[in-house]
């Protein structure tokens, strides 16, 4: 800055005028400046909430009212104590069961659907894809009442009551599988349609069935697509609150997921904000790890098909 001010003094203009002058001569300077402005903005909006959670978790709960951005204390024991207050590990386990089951089911079904839509010619293909697209645009909340009736055994079909799934992981897995299927079908349709026919033919001549060729050749070659669809589904289900909240009553033995666990720190008379913040941080960790490990594949998966190579 001192050198800049010195030159300003020599030219006789103010520092801002001089900066603008040199920027006009050298547009790269403006690009760089805008890049840093944008970078700082996005870094702030994404990282600040996490920082805020750290601040809240480290501050003892009696000091937490009117919090500023600096922690008031360093109460790291909260990360140990919270497990004793609420069985968070059970809630997390439920969340994993729900997310992994849903992801596996979605990947399996959307692989079969993606194979049919991407590699076979049949009548009504366009119509079915359109139908799938329309369904994927339905607001999930619109399904909650009929699903609630269904899962509480209040729907009778041919004299049979619907299964009583309420307050089990099943009541969360089933609707999520349906809701996240269309996106995965679209992603995998694009990927599977790009695998050359010759490879599938070769696999079939060598000794697989069509399904065998799908699992042995087409799916391994579409790994970026599969991991994109899988991770998007996993994260969305892991983070979901609405259905999880309405379809269970909040006991970990009844399949209540992580969000219920975080809410469990809140009771009628007390809110353990520092514990909730610590639990949120722990809850973020698995997803953050997955994204770090798989980010390369996600990026290539999301951009594949956009550009013809």
């Amino acid at each position: 800055m001192t050198t800049a001010q010195n030159t300003d003094a020599e030219d006789g203009g103010g520092p801002f005028t001089n900066w603008v002058k040199s920027a006009i001569e050298n547009p790269g300077k403006v690009h760089r400046a805008m890049f840093y402005v944008a970078l700082i903005f996005f870094m702030f909006t994404t990282l600040f909430p996490i920082y805020w959670l750290v601040v809240l978790s480290l501050t003892p709960n009696d000091l937490i009212v009117n919090m500023g951005p600096i922690p008031r204390g360093f109460n790291i024991s909260v990360f140990v104590d919270m497990w004793q207050t609420v069985p968070l590990h059970q809630y997390m386990f439920n969340s994993f069961v729900i997310a992994i089951t849903t992801t596996a089911y979605v990947l399996l079904v959307s692989s079969l659907a993606g194979y049919a839509f991407g590699r076979l010619e049949f009548r009504g293909k366009g119509g079915l894809l359109l139908l799938l697209l329309i369904i994927s645009f339905f607001p999930p909340a619109a399904f909650i009442l009929p699903l609630f009736k269904l899962f509480t055994g209040n729907v009778v079909l041919f004299g049979l009551h619907s299964p009583d799934l309420f307050n089990t992981v099943g009541a969360i897995i089933v609707p999520f599988s349906g809701l996240f299927l269309p996106l995965s079908v679209f992603i995998l349709t694009t990927f599977y349609s790009q695998i050359p026919d010759g490879l599938e033919d070769a696999a079939r001549v060598e000794g697989t069935t069509r399904i065998g060729a799908l699992f042995r050749v087409i799916m391994p070659l579409s790994a970026p697509g599969l991991s994109t669809a899988g991770i998007l589904t996993f994260i969305a289900v892991y983070n979901e609150f609405f259905f999880s909240f309405l379809m269970t009553t909040g006991q970990p033995e009844n399949g209540a997921p992580l969000v219920w666990g975080i809410l469990a720190f809140q009771s009628q008379y007390t809110s353990l904000y520092n514990y909730m913040a610590a639990a949120s941080l722990i809850g973020i960790l698995p997803v953050a790890l997955i994204v770090v490990v798989a980010q390369e594949k996600i990026v290539s998966g999301l951009t594949a098909g956009a550009v013809k190579e």
Binding site: P196, G198, L199, D201, A202, A203, R204, V205, E206, G207, T208, T209, V217, P220, L221
Partner: peptide
Amino acid sequence: LPPKDRGIAMVFQNIALFPHMDVYDNVSFG
């Protein structure tokens, strides 16, 4: 019969080696 049960082997115009397997795995696939 499906292709796998016909007792035939095929060489394709676009060669169609499985890109995710090495040569040994390709040759021994069947």
